[in-house]
Amino acid sequence: MSAICAQMLDPDDFVHSSYHVKTYYKVYEPAIMPMNSSRLWRKTGYIPPLPSNFGKKRGRPKKTRKPPADEDPKEKKKRNKEKKGSIKLNKQRWKVHCHFCGEEGHNKKGCEWRKFAE
């Protein structure tokens, strides 16, 4: 059944003439010769266009160092471990003080004196 339908339909009925091979050859028939330098360009009275100013891109900026394709990822991990291990800062703990009674070890939310005062 599909073979009969394929014989009845002509692809030229569904494709625009601009997509035909003959039209392509007509468009590109004349040769476009390149110019040797910009001095040969025709001068116009218009201001030359400037490049677009896209500004700062949104999101997180890219890394400053792009690793080469031949770099071994295992060496990268070793290098990162060396950096982390060389300078190690300990967290400094601080004591929590209550703003209601002024004692150490709890905050205002867990203060028992505040519970009695309410």
Rank of each mutant, 00 (worst) to 15 (best):
K62A: 13
K62W: 06
R60T: 15
K88I: 15
I32D: 01
G85Q: 08
G59I: 04
S17K: 04
G110H: 11
R114I: 08
K78M: 06
E104P: 14
W94E: 13
T44L: 10
P61C: 08
S18M: 03
P73T: 07
F14D: 11
R65I: 15
N80E: 08
P51F: 01
P30N: 01
T64D: 04
T23K: 03
G85P: 00
H99I: 09
F116M: 11
A117K: 09
M35G: 01
P48W: 00
E82D: 07
C111F: 00
T44Q: 05
K83G: 03
K109N: 10
M1E: 13
K84G: 04
P61F: 07
R65Q: 07
R65H: 14
R42P: 06
K56V: 15
P30H: 01
I87G: 02
E104M: 11
K62C: 10
S86M: 12
P49W: 00
V96G: 05
V21N: 03
H99M: 14
D70I: 03
G85N: 14
P49Q: 05
T23W: 01
S2I: 15
R58H: 11
R93G: 12
S2Q: 13
Q7D: 10
I47E: 13
P34I: 00
K43S: 04
K22W: 06
G85L: 09
Y28M: 03
R93V: 13
N107H: 01
L89W: 01
K115T: 14
W41A: 12
